[in-house]
Deep mutational scan, measured.
Amino acid sequence: RADKQHVLDMLFSAFEKHQYYNLKDLVDITKQPVVYLKEILKEIGVQNVKGIHKNTWELKPEYR
């Protein structure tokens, strides 16, 4: 399990490339446990629960 700041850096870097990611792809990118990753994502992102981007994560507007 990596340092939180290191995980945040990896996530922000990923979100610079694409606006939406599913959790599986973010786990592959960060190599972090799902529960730990979700904890961090809830602080900086929102999970889309409907629409064409259903079940994906994106950054909260203040982090874009």
Rank of each mutant, 00 (worst) to 15 (best):
R1L: 13
R1M: 06
R1C: 09
A2L: 14
D3P: 06
D3S: 10
D3H: 09
Q5N: 15
Q5K: 11
Q5G: 10
H6R: 15
V7Y: 03
V7W: 02
D9K: 15
M10H: 04
L11R: 00
L11P: 00
A14M: 12
A14P: 00
A14V: 07
A14E: 04
F15T: 00
F15A: 01
E16I: 02
E16K: 12
E16V: 04
K17P: 01
K17C: 05
K17W: 02
K17T: 05
K17V: 07
H18F: 03
H18M: 08
H18W: 03
H18S: 12
H18N: 02
H18I: 05
Q19F: 04
Q19I: 05
Y20R: 14
Y20T: 12
Y20N: 06
Y21L: 15
Y21C: 14
Y21I: 10
Y21V: 12
Y21G: 02
N22R: 13
N22M: 11
N22V: 10
L23K: 00
L23A: 03
L23D: 03
K24A: 11
K24P: 10
D25T: 08
D25Q: 10
D25L: 03
D25C: 04
D25P: 00
L26D: 00
L26W: 01
L26H: 00
L26F: 02
L26M: 03
V27P: 00
V27F: 03
V27L: 11
V27M: 13
V27K: 11
V27E: 09
D28W: 05
D28M: 08
I29L: 12
T30N: 01
T30I: 03
T30E: 00
T30Y: 02
K31I: 00
K31Q: 14
K31F: 02
K31C: 11
Q32R: 06
Q32F: 11
Q32H: 06
Q32K: 09
Q32Y: 08
P33Q: 04
V34M: 13
V34T: 12
V34W: 05
V34S: 14
V35K: 15
V35R: 14
V35I: 13
Y36E: 12
Y36D: 07
Y36V: 11
L37M: 05
L37A: 01
K38Y: 04
K38I: 14
K38S: 11
K38E: 12
E39G: 10
E39K: 11
E39L: 04
I40V: 09
I40Q: 03
L41I: 04
L41W: 00
L41K: 02
K42F: 05
K42A: 11
E43F: 03
E43C: 06
E43Y: 01
G45F: 00
G45M: 03
V46K: 14
V46D: 09
V46N: 08
N48P: 10
N48G: 10
V49D: 12
V49Q: 12
V49A: 15
V49E: 12
K50C: 11
K50D: 12
G51R: 04
G51D: 11
G51A: 05
I52V: 12
I52D: 14
I52L: 14
I52N: 09
H53I: 14
K54D: 10
K54E: 14
N55Y: 09
N55S: 10
N55D: 14
T56G: 08
T56R: 11
T56C: 14
W57P: 03
W57N: 02
W57I: 14
E58Y: 07
L59R: 02
L59N: 02
L59T: 01
L59H: 02
L59W: 01
L59A: 03
K60M: 04
K60F: 01
K60V: 02
E62S: 07
E62W: 09
E62K: 12
E62T: 06
Y63F: 14
Y63N: 12
R64V: 11
